[in-house]
Amino acid sequence: MSLFSGTISTLENALNYSATKQKVISQNIANVDTPNYKAKDVSFKAALDQAVGQSISTNRTDNRHFVFTKPSYSLSIMNKNLVSYNENGNSVDIDQEMADLAKNQIYFNALTERINGKFSTLQNVIRGGK
């Protein structure tokens, strides 16, 4: 959704990241006792590197202006590296997963508050400031 600025679409992408991270953390917690289960994580760095490597499209009025194109990225889910394994080959650390879950919840709540503020502002503009 591209209304007046890229802020709403940026917030939408951040919400998609948070939702994907929630699913992965939930899978890890659900499989805490599954033998040989390898904990997974969502790679934000890979998505960021992919987006930074691209440029944003703009209207150039002079050949000396920089060329930008719109970044696009996809989130990748990968196994966590450098983790210790339990005696059954499982690599889920329940304490770390619960901490990640709480951190992701705070992040998600902040994003929803911000996007609600954006929509409130748009609603106020549509009403004419009344």
Rank of each mutant, 00 (worst) to 15 (best):
D49W: 00
R64E: 14
V52H: 08
V67F: 07
M78W: 01
G129H: 02
E12M: 08
S5D: 15
T121H: 09
K80D: 08
K40C: 03
A47N: 05
F44R: 00
N90H: 01
I106E: 02
D33A: 07
E87M: 13
T20L: 13
Y17F: 07
D49L: 01
R114W: 14
I115D: 05
S120E: 07
I8M: 15
Y107W: 06
R60T: 13
S120Q: 08
T58N: 14
N81K: 12
S26W: 03
F119V: 11
F119N: 07
Q50D: 15
D33G: 02
I94A: 09
L75Y: 09
Q54Y: 07
E12L: 06
N109I: 09
K130T: 10
Q27I: 11
N109S: 11
I106T: 09
N36D: 14
N16A: 04
N31G: 05
I106H: 01
R127Q: 14
D62T: 15
E97S: 00
S76K: 12
Y73A: 08
Y37P: 11
T58S: 11
S9N: 15
N36P: 06
I115T: 10
Y37A: 02
T34Q: 06
L122P: 00
S76H: 08
V52A: 14
Y73P: 00
D33R: 03
I8R: 07
G128A: 04
Q96R: 04
I29S: 04
V52K: 09
K130H: 11
N59W: 08
N13Y: 05
A102V: 02
Q105T: 11
F66Y: 12
S91L: 00
K70G: 15
N104R: 01
L15P: 06
A14D: 03
F68M: 13
G128N: 07
F44D: 02
Q54W: 05
T61G: 12
I94D: 10
L15M: 05
I115R: 01
F44Y: 03
S57H: 14
T69F: 15
N79V: 12
V42R: 01
N90W: 03
N88S: 10
K40H: 10
F66N: 10
T10P: 06
A99T: 05
F66M: 10
T10H: 10
Y17Q: 02
V83L: 03
N79R: 15
T69I: 15
A14C: 03
K38D: 04
L11E: 12
K118G: 11
S76R: 09
N86G: 05
K45C: 12
Q105M: 07
Q50A: 13
I25M: 10
S2D: 15
I8P: 08
P71C: 13
S26R: 04
I29M: 05
T58F: 04
N81F: 08
S120L: 08
D93F: 02
L15N: 00
K80C: 07
P35M: 03
N86L: 11
